[in-house]
Design a protein around this nucleic acid. Structure first.
Lengths: 111, 111
DNA sequence: TAAGTTTATCGCAAATTTACGATTAATATT
DNA sequence: AATATTAATCGTAAATTTGCGATAAACTTA
């Protein structure tokens, strides 16, 4: 991909929020997060039974959520127990909340 | 792309939220939204001056934000005035807030 | 030790995203 | 009518995403 000569600068917040948003940008990942969140306790690989997708594909989506910091995986071979990463979840929640509140400043008449 | 034989079903909420998240998943689109939101009133095309990217690229990103419903464009040739779509902005805000709150149910010991 | 279970990773193909320059469209100005 | 301004669209190239099946890795159980 050709890149701009003068590179666009982003704030840390912009980078982090974009990364989290990207993790949330696929419906199956939202579904996975909701399933993990709805358990009274953490969860393992019933995901493969609940979601009709190849095991390798679900594993890939889990990896994306892990890398975004939204979930944690506790290895307990041969199983892995996934759950919400509460600390980062809270951070993400705050980030999005602040972002959406920020537009309240705008007092235009057009909508 | 090969598709799964049994198609995964998503709720309307999952689809909508994923689409909004996708619109928010690029730092330059976050920057654009912040710039639009920070204006006391609406905004025209200074974006090209504020963001060192090709005009066509910025136009593409604006289109993505338009299609996600996050902004509105008031055509006033040869200029176009963009601003936050407050109605959908509120909807998106609620969607994300509810989503993040939902994980509070999870009482696992692992995080 | 051999077979089974669970999950990650590899290799691949198709689709989508991202960015650019060039061009077009629509209107205002000279 | 000719030129200038602003923004969208087209065409293209490279990168990334998404999905699958096959295989590998790690540990249990027979």
């Amino acid at each position: 991909m050709r890149r701009t000569l003068s590179v666009v600068e982003y704030s840390g917040e912009e980078e982090v929020m974009a990364a989290v948003a990207k993790a949330l940008s696929h419906p199956v990942r939202l579904k996975i997060l909701k399933l993990l969140a709805s358990q009274t306790c953490c969860f393992t690989g019933e995901l493969t039974e609940l979601i009709p997708m190849a095991q390798s594909t679900i594993s890939q989506h889990l990896k994306a959520l892990l890398e975004a910091g939204l979930i944690r995986g506790e290895i307990n071979p041969p199983k892995v127990k996934y759950c919400i990463n509460k600390e980062n979840w809270l951070k993400a929640s705050t980030l999005f909340a602040r972002f959406f509140i920020s537009s309240k400043k705008c007092h235009c008449d057009c909508g």
